[in-house]
Design a protein around this nucleic acid. Sequence first.
DNA 1: AAACTATATTCAGGCTTTTGAATATAAGGT
DNA 2: ACCTTATATTCAAAAGCCTGAATATAGTTT
Lengths: 115, 115
Amino acid sequence: MEHSYAYLADLFKALSHSTRLQILDLLRDGELCVCHIEAALDKRQAYVSQQLMALREAGLVVSRRHGLQVYYRLADTQIDDLLDAAFGNSRTGAFQRIDGCPCPSCTTIPIEQIH
Amino acid sequence: MEHSYAYLADLFKALSHSTRLQILDLLRDGELCVCHIEAALDKRQAYVSQQLMALREAGLVVSRRHGLQVYYRLADTQIDDLLDAAFGNSRTGAFQRIDGCPCPSCTTIPIEQIH
DNA sequence: AAACTATATTCAGGCTTTTGAATATAAGGT
DNA sequence: ACCTTATATTCAAAAGCCTGAATATAGTTT
């Protein structure tokens, strides 16, 4: 903690963009793969990837690869706190499937739900 | 509350500038006149006034005029909370005089302190 | 009402950001 | 090996921001 003004300015610059804010707001409910974010925003892949890169470079999100998918999540709890201060701390906490999204989370069901 | 992403993006854009962050950090300890901010930052008047205008337009600060001086303060407690999340919530809470600053706060003493 | 002090606004050149298009890479399937 | 899917990177033109210089305004004092 105790960041310089220049550091914070860069962080806020990454936040000063409505598409990026929308992505962060999605991520408040948990980790998501790129293709899911793409479907949620209805934006093209390259564009989403660019915005994710900006968020990554600002240290706001981190990613991990699992097979073909890359999953993004908020970098740490301080970021959560900052977003709570901005968005208010209402969130659903639950994953939302999206029609037409090809990602595993949207196209599979846990075994215990099959009868 | 419940602001749009575009609104929040504009707010963060105003925050994405180290001079403006420095001004806001000063204002966390209380209302200040423009000339005091000018002295604290060691920047020219027109420049400070421009940054204050940006902060005002973003709704981060409000001003009131008293004679020749114009005093600025943080717009509301939500802004305080947001800045606490960013800066940490350490603050002195006390006004700091500045050598060479011509403003009333720096050049006068309360009557009860004269003996 | 003129001069002065404190603050605000306008403008324009330079600089950075934004975003679409094209292309690259990485992993998995056949 | 090749093809496909998922994601990342590069590039360049357009759009927007930053900031210094000049100027304007609002209130006070003489």
